[in-house]
Amino acid sequence: MSEFRLPLGEWVSLLVNWLQDDGSGIFEAIGTVVETFSGGIEDGLSAVPVWLFIGAVAALGLWRKGWAFAGFCVLAFGVIVTTGFWDQTVETLALIISATVISLLMGVPLGIWSASSKRVETIVRPTLDFMQTMPAFVYLIPAAMLFGLGRVPGVLATVIFSMPPAVRLTALGIRQVNKEQVEAGISFGCTPAQLLFKVQIPGAMPSILAGVNQTIMMALSMVIIASMVGAGGLGNDVLAGISRLDVGLGFESGLGVVLLAIMLDRLTESFGERRAKRPKRGS
């Protein structure tokens, strides 16, 4: 009995090998699309002059959160620029944006679908649990095998890791829309599509935006790990700091990650807050 070992690992690697051999065309196509998309975003972001970039973020911060936060943004970028991590930060931000966009494009519709169908939900839920609890590093291995080293496996591993909250919170939001509001929609003659776009999605918006916020934060943490397959950005420096036991480098690049995280979190969160406030009744 003790001699028997379930060769699960072998099966998975066989599967990946098979995908590598017979599905290379598909993966190449996916790779090209992702590479073009995320490369485009990075080129776009790095084409913006530093001062304009900082000014734009500060203005956004001023609009959403007020003077104090705008000041914080300027200060944070000041630290990033003067410690020499500007290019890496922009690279990381580009990775986050492309991974988040892909996650949302897949996650939000999947969330809507699983909110409306019990059967879909029973498949989606355990899958999401699997995606979230499997150690993040593990995705990197097949991703790198199928797509080679570089930005693409990094972005795709990040997508897998960061998509669950978008799906979950979208489904939750749709399910929590006031029952009588949905009934009102139906009773005034909404088709299923009208009901979705005029009643359910607007009603679920606060929850969906909370999902967007979560997705971005998950993407940020994964993008750092993804530097192990050569995704680039601040993660490279963190990794270099670890491998060289360079505390200073590790701290500086790590601080860049922290500052970026705070800004992204507060800004995206503020969009959800405002919408969440409106439905409250004042009498």
Binding site: E180, Q181, S187, F188, G203
Partner: peptide
Amino acid sequence: RRHDMSMVFQSFALLPQ
């Protein structure tokens, strides 16, 4: 439902946005 029969709800069920 669109032309002939409409409904009013206890919780008003207005769309807040």
